[in-house]
């Protein structure tokens, strides 16, 4: 479970001014929940995740991970960033083995577990490819395998499928939902795609423009399992999309 209380943050701009990026954001995500955050570009979503995973110390507020309640390894945190951030000098296999190396898993088991996850995300046969030899979608698959292989109980994902074409994106959404459904993890997911938000989440948090605050949290009443390929035809989809859109649009520039 993740609890963020009154988190705020600011940056110093190149011209030396203080720019408020996040203001009084409180989010509470339950164990095994799929929680999505949508918000206008530049409103501080990435900063929020960087704070949540501990890369950035917030100027104000607190972040608590209550571990041990979700599926997955207590305390382990996964972070799938906007760019895949694979190590360019390491093959798919070596990249996926990184977290296992860090955890000092035995050499033979490392290879076995990594190979298993490479297969699950559909990269079988590409073990010895370097990241630059993979398409964007395949790099994403590799990043997902690299995160899932160490079984974190909470996974943060920052617009992971934003750069993919529509078809690849939907396929990746299906892979992710299948994984989440069988593995029971807590997922905090960021997107600017409302269809994606509805297709995946239990609840959607809507942020305002900078300084970002959490404006509303909207539950997604669609049943599970969901068919991501036909989600736009699901009953209730349109009205929910309209509701989210009207929450967002008041904050977009005219």
């Amino acid at each position: 479970m993740l609890r963020m209380d009154s988190v705020s943050h600011s940056f110093i701009t190149p011209t030396g001014q203080r720019m408020e990026v996040l203001s009084d954001v409180s989010i509470s995500v339950e164990e095994n929940e799929f929680f999505t955050v949508v918000g206008p570009s530049g409103c501080g979503k990435t900063t929020l995740l960087n704070i949540a995973v501990g890369l950035v110390e917030p100027a104000g507020g607190t972040v608590r991970h209550v571990t041990g309640a979700s599926g997955g390894r207590p305390g382990a945190v996964g972070y799938i960033t906007q760019d895949s951030n694979l190590l360019p000098w390491a093959t798919v296999m070596e990249n996926v083995m990184v977290p296992l190396e860090i955890r000092k898993v035995k050499r033979s088991e490392r290879r076995e577990q990594a190979a298993e996850w490479i297969r699950i995300v559909g990269l079988g046969g590409f073990e010895d490819h370097y990241p630059r030899q993979l398409s964007g979608g395949m790099q994403k698959r590799c990043a997902i395998a690299r995160t899932m292989v160490y079984d974190p109980e909470i996974v943060f994902m920052d617009e992971p499928f934003g750069a993919l074409d529509a078809l690849t994106k939907t396929t990746m959404q299906k892979i992710l939902l299948d994984l989440w459904q069988t593995r029971r993890k807590t997922i905090i997911f960021i997107t600017h795609d409302l269809t994606e938000a509805i297709a995946l989440s239990d609840r959607v948090g809507v942020m305002t423009g900078r300084p970002g605050t959490l404006k509303a949290v909207v539950p997604v009443p669609l049943g599970r399992p969901r068919d991501v390929y036909r989600i736009t035809g699901a009953p209730g989809f349109e009205s929910l999309r309209n509701e989210l859109w009207s929450l967002l649009e008041t904050d977009l520039d005219p």
């Binding site: 996850w117 699950i120 398409s135 079984d151 690849t168």
Partner: peptide
């Protein structure tokens, strides 16, 4: 780590998903 029975996810590489 639960490794058994991890075949629930489709493993096909989608058509839009080709090597450069």
């Amino acid at each position: 780590m639960k490794l058994a029975g991890q075949h629930e996810v489709s493993t096909a590489v989608a058509s839009g998903d080709v090597v450069p």
